[in-house]
Amino acid sequence: MNSGRAPRRRSERRFRALPPVVVGVAALTLSACGGGGKSGGGGDTNFVTNTGGISSVAPADRKPANQLSGETLDGEQLDVADLKGKIVVMNVWGSWCPPCRAEAPHFAKVAKETESKGVAFVGINTRDPNKGPALAFEKDYGVPYPSLYDPAGKLIVNGFPKGSLNPQSIPSTIVLDQDGKIAARALLALDAEKLRKMIDPLIAEK
């Protein structure tokens, strides 16, 4: 006897919502330079960089960063919280990213110039499926500071609170004040002059 209901097809499937981390990484990938969506990027220069420029936050409105810790490209353990008391410049980069290569010499230069002024640089290397190309990048550009190894982008997604200035493209640069709070962000490749414009006001606060 026919009940009037259409028979269910075996091919019908329910789609589950993606976990927040997966959604966040996917969003970052969409706004990342190079790669065309391929894991680890590629050699082309068809990149999209957020044009939002440089943003800053008044001291009273700053939010603390979440936990940012893990293994560096050199195999050491690093916790950004241990750098409290210093101004921390965090640069999100990948060896496959053309704008990252363009800004790397500027970051190496400014890192050396500002070390004596209480500024520490920390990279977050992402979307490099193995460390080899990233280590070669650091050697080629004389990068003097450590980088956390974050191939899946989990630190990028979870390390910065919602509603704060967080990374939304590759490269991105986040500057923490001496209290570990997010003070400035750039969503584009930086030269030395633009980088100093982010850092110098925080040095003056000390």
Rank of each mutant, 00 (worst) to 15 (best):
V25S: 14
K86F: 10
L18Y: 02
L73T: 02
L30D: 11
T126A: 07
L202P: 04
S3Y: 00
G41E: 13
R10G: 13
V122Q: 12
S55K: 15
E138V: 02
R8L: 14
V80G: 12
A111S: 15
A102R: 10
F47M: 11
K63N: 06
E71P: 03
V119T: 02
K63P: 04
A108W: 05
P167T: 03
K194W: 05
G118I: 08
E12S: 12
A104K: 11
R13W: 01
L202V: 02
A65D: 05
G70H: 04
Q77M: 01
P201V: 06
T51W: 03
A17W: 00
I203D: 12
L83V: 00
D140S: 09
I156H: 08
E193M: 00
F47H: 14
L190T: 03
Q67K: 14
V57F: 03
G94A: 03
S56H: 08
L135H: 03
V119L: 04
V175D: 10
I124W: 02
D150R: 08
L78K: 02
G40T: 07
G40L: 04
Q178H: 09
V57G: 04
E138M: 13
V92C: 03
R5V: 09
A81N: 12
L190P: 06
S95G: 06
K154C: 01
V23T: 14
G41L: 06
V22S: 09
K197L: 11
L187C: 02
N46A: 13
L28W: 15
K162S: 15
S147C: 06
I170L: 15
V80K: 09
G132D: 13
V25E: 12
P151K: 11
K194V: 00
S11T: 10
R101I: 02
P167Y: 03
F47K: 09
R9M: 13
K206A: 15
G24N: 11
G37L: 06
V122I: 14
G75F: 13
K197A: 15
G85Y: 01
S39A: 12
G4M: 07
A32W: 02
F107W: 11
A134P: 04
R5L: 11
G24S: 12
G159L: 07
G35D: 10
I170R: 05
L148N: 09
T72M: 04
G142Y: 05
I170Y: 07
K38W: 01
K139E: 13
I199N: 08
G123Q: 06
E76V: 03
S39R: 12
P64S: 15
K162W: 01
E103I: 02
V25R: 13
I54D: 09
K206H: 10
V88N: 10
